[in-house]
Design a protein around this nucleic acid. Structure first.
Length: 266
DNA sequence: GTGTCATGCGTAT
DNA sequence: TACGCCTGACACG
């Protein structure tokens, strides 16, 4: 499921597999029939990600804009793809494989100006290498009086963090989620940014969100981690903190549930 | 079969 | 703050 790491990973893998290829495209579900007809027969030039948004550049000049939302999912097959599900909004086939896209919130063709407008609404993206990202992050937090736990979900403050990473990043940096964003001290903001880059990069490489240090849960490698042992606090309310044994708490923040250790994060 | 839930976000109130 | 939207997996009867 999609936080920023999933999106950047999709951009990298889709570019590797399909860039330079001419595709034949359809919309099995029918809700993107006109768009699919425009893509059909075009060559994919490049794929880029910004926060949770994906942009596919076609030889025609059209840009395919995709936002997976909560449920969106890509499936890619090398050969013999199964029939698409009823919800498959976009399907394309190329000599290098078949791609299905279902459940996405946004699937549309846009022009370069519209892409700029999307990017302009987004905060710094920890998975893009641009200058002065930390200071941009710090400035945007300094303007917000909402809790840091809510600010991390605001894509205008920082682009790409979702509900799992926000809880885990605040645990990893020992920050109380209820601290007003503007009151998080400078050193903590720096560490939060550094940890965010580190964790999202790891997620982009592996395709999974694993934040625990394996020895802390009795494993020696990441591969050994059981599914329920990969995170420190997310969805662990009522269970003991992996570091101090204090019961993990939960509350709603920024419209979603958040989890934290009241002892480690204060 | 129905109901519930999910790593998201926009709009209305 | 509530609701709607997008889909699929799983629990339950």
């Amino acid at each position: 499921m999609p936080e920023g790491h999933t999106i950047h990973r999709a951009a990298r893998l889709h570019a590797k597999r399909f860039a330079g290829e001419v595709v034949s495209a359809t919309s099995p579900q029918g809700r993107f029939s006109r768009g699919a007809a425009r893509i059909d027969g075009q060559k994919l030039e490049s794929v880029t990600a910004h926060g949770k948004h994906l942009f596919y550049d076609w030889s025609s000049g059209d840009i395919l804009h995709v936002h997976l939302g909560l449920f969106g999912r890509f499936r890619v097959f090398s050969e013999d793809p199964p029939p698409p599900t009823d919800g498959t909004r976009l399907a394309w086939a190329a000599p290098t494989g078949t791609l299905y896209l279902a459940g996405a919130t946004i699937v549309e063709l846009i022009d370069p100006d519209e892409r700029e407008a999307v990017a302009a609404r987004l905060g710094p993206d920890p998975l893009r290498s641009e200058r002065d990202q930390v200071s941009e992050f710090a400035e945007r937090l300094a303007r917000r009086s909402v809790p840091i736990g809510a600010a991390l979900l605001d894509q205008r403050a920082v682009a790409g963090i979702g509900n799992v990473y926000r809880a885990e990043l605040l645990f990893l940096t020992g920050i109380d989620p209820s601290t007003p964003a503007k009151d998080v001290d400078g050193g903590d903001v720096d560490r939060l940014w550094t940890e965010t880059v580190k964790q999202l990069r790891a997620g982009e490489r592996s395709g999974r969100i694993i934040t625990v240090d394996p020895p802390e849960v009795g494993a020696t490698t990441r591969q050994e981690l059981r599914r329920q042992d990969r995170l420190y606090v997310y969805k662990r309310d009522g269970q003991p903190c992996r570091r101090c044994g204090t019961e993990i708490e939960t509350t709603e923040m920024g419209g979603r549930n958040i989890w934290w250790c009241p002892a480690c994060q204060s």
